[in-house]
Computed example of a mutant assay.
Amino acid sequence: MEGEMQEITNLVGREVYSNNGVFVGEVEDIQLDLDRESVTGLALTELNYDLFHDKAAGSRGVIIPYRWVRSVGDIVLVNDIVERMREPEEEEEV
């Protein structure tokens, strides 16, 4: 279990990119569900404000669901966050 805890803390400071190569932010903290002993989200700072300008205006960061994570290595890859963060009317125009 100690190795698992070390692995979780190693996420802090890693850069997060979408699977399309778009910079999303940097992991500052991890959101946990202690009852289920699972990671539920990643708290990101140093955000790409082109993605989050409407959602994160005036805040230091955002929390993205951990289910969006595709892989973890030197960086964290997440699902296409760009499409997930768009307003519904923007998607219709595309």
Rank of each mutant, 00 (worst) to 15 (best):
M1A: 13
M1G: 14
M1W: 12
M5Y: 12
Q6M: 12
Q6I: 13
E7C: 00
E7D: 13
I8N: 08
I8M: 04
T9Q: 15
T9W: 14
T9C: 14
T9G: 14
T9A: 13
T9Y: 14
N10W: 07
L11H: 09
V12K: 07
G13K: 04
V16L: 10
Y17D: 11
S18R: 00
S18K: 08
N20A: 07
G21Q: 04
G21E: 01
F23I: 10
F23S: 00
V24Y: 01
E26D: 07
E26A: 05
E28Y: 12
D29P: 05
D29Q: 08
I30F: 07
Q31K: 15
Q31A: 14
L32M: 14
D33W: 10
L34Y: 14
R36I: 08
R36A: 15
R36W: 11
E37Q: 13
S38M: 15
S38G: 08
S38V: 15
S38P: 06
V39A: 11
V39M: 02
T40Q: 01
G41I: 05
G41H: 02
G41S: 07
A43T: 13
L44F: 10
L44I: 09
N48V: 10
Y49D: 11
Y49L: 15
Y49C: 01
L51M: 00
F52H: 03
F52Q: 06
H53A: 14
K55I: 14
A56Y: 02
A57P: 06
G58H: 05
S59K: 15
S59R: 15
S59P: 05
S59H: 15
V62G: 07
I63T: 11
P65Q: 00
P65H: 02
R67M: 11
R70I: 08
R70S: 08
S71A: 05
D74G: 04
I75F: 06
I75A: 02
V76R: 09
V76S: 01
L77V: 11
V78D: 11
I81S: 03
E83M: 12
E83W: 06
R84M: 12
M85V: 15
M85G: 01
R86P: 05
R86V: 07
E87Y: 09
E89M: 11
E91H: 08
E92D: 09
E92W: 08
E93R: 01
V94E: 04
